[in-house]
């Protein structure tokens, strides 16, 4: 059903499955994928039949090896790059999607791949998954929200260590650090992920959307303001 070049968009039994699909480049994130993911997120948000989003990676080698560095340096200027970043705020759109989101991670999950997973609500991984933020070793920094999302999940010291050294984190460490919620055998990854997400998404959609919003927005507020937000959101469900 999709006319995308870098993604597969499938609706299955109440959930949307977006598969990053450039397996020849370990699904490296490029400009085209950015535009297509943005479009896909709009479809997920607006389609009432879709109750949750699963993001997976195509091919044997991994979920996503990071940004496609062959496109770096093609932005016309810093001013244009900054404009483009906010013209369509893809990463906030993913973080704020009012439906449960889950990443199913296998193999390489580097750079933007890790950042995409970190912006999802839940992460399922197979044992072969390996995580890294190699940006600083290339003179770059993570730019898909990773400096903000990762410390919120694993704490500042581990986020600093991973982002400063670029070292690889195994799936086992990722579970212990609270980054991966469930570890499953490779051959069952996508089946288990879909089943888990469908189970999560079977709860009333309004409650899921508001619970997600209360947690995410509340994390950025003082306790008193967070409690007021929670009361206000809860009242909508009565």
């Amino acid at each position: 059903m999709s006319a995308f070049e870098t993604l597969r968009y499938e609706k299955r039994d109440g959930i949307a499955v977006v598969t990053l699909c450039r397996p020849e480049a370990i699904n490296a994130f490029n400009v085209r994928m950015r535009d297509e993911l943005s479009e896909a997120l709009g479809a997920v948000r607006d389609d009432a039949e879709v109750r949750g989003l699963l993001i997976a990676g195509d091919g044997e080698r991994g979920f996503c090896a990071g940004a496609d560095l062959t496109e770096f340096g093609t932005a016309p200027s810093q001013a244009v790059a900054r404009y483009v970043r906010w013209a369509r705020d893809l990463w906030s759109a993913l973080a704020e999607l009012p439906k449960p989101t889950m990443a199913a991670v296998h193999g390489y999950c580097f750079g933007s791949g890790l950042e995409i997973a970190a912006l999802c609500d839940l992460r399922v991984a197979s044992q072969d998954a390996v995580f890294a933020l190699p940006e600083a070793s290339l003179g770059l920094i993570p730019a898909a929200g990773g400096t903000q999302s990762l410390p919120r999940i694993v704490g500042l010291p581990r986020a600093m260590e991973l982002a400063l050294t670029g070292r690889r984190m195994t799936s086992g460490e990722a579970v212990r650090a609270g980054f991966v919620d469930w570890l499953v055998p490779r051959e069952q990854l996508h089946v288990v992920a879909e089943a888990r997400l469908r189970d999560v998404a079977s709860a009333p959609a309004g409650a899921l959307a508001l619970a997600k919003r209360a947690v995410n927005e509340g994390a950025d507020l003082t306790l008193a303001d967070g409690l007021r937000l929670e009361r206000r959101l809860a009242a909508r469900l009565r």
Partner: peptide, 10 residues
Amino acid sequence: DAGPVAAQYV
């Protein structure tokens, strides 16, 4: 070993 400016910004 990381880019020094990048490390500071991280």
